[in-house]
């Protein structure tokens, strides 16, 4: 690691960081879009009220 210059380390690290961050953002966008699509599909399959338990009145 000593043979690699500090500048290369810094720039390389930045490049990896930036690249990974960009990929992460793109991935999140794609994932979110996919999630929305899947949720719609699941809503069609299971209906919406399966996502939450409804509160019901209880008796004495």
């Amino acid at each position: 690691m000593n043979e690699i210059s500090s500048r290369m380390l810094f720039l390389g690290g930045l490049a990896v960081l930036a690249g990974a961050a960009v990929i992460l953002i793109l991935f999140l966008i794609v994932f979110l879009m996919g999630k929305i699509k899947l949720n719609m599909k699941l809503d069609m399959e299971y209906g919406e009220n399966t996502k939450k338990k409804r509160n019901n009145s209880k008796g004495r």
Binding site: M8, L9, G13, L14, V16, L17, G19
Partner: peptide, 10 residues
């Protein structure tokens, strides 16, 4: 890793 490497480089 990138942040750490950049930090180390810095």
């Amino acid at each position: 890793a990138g942040a750490f490497t950049a930090f180390t480089g810095l």
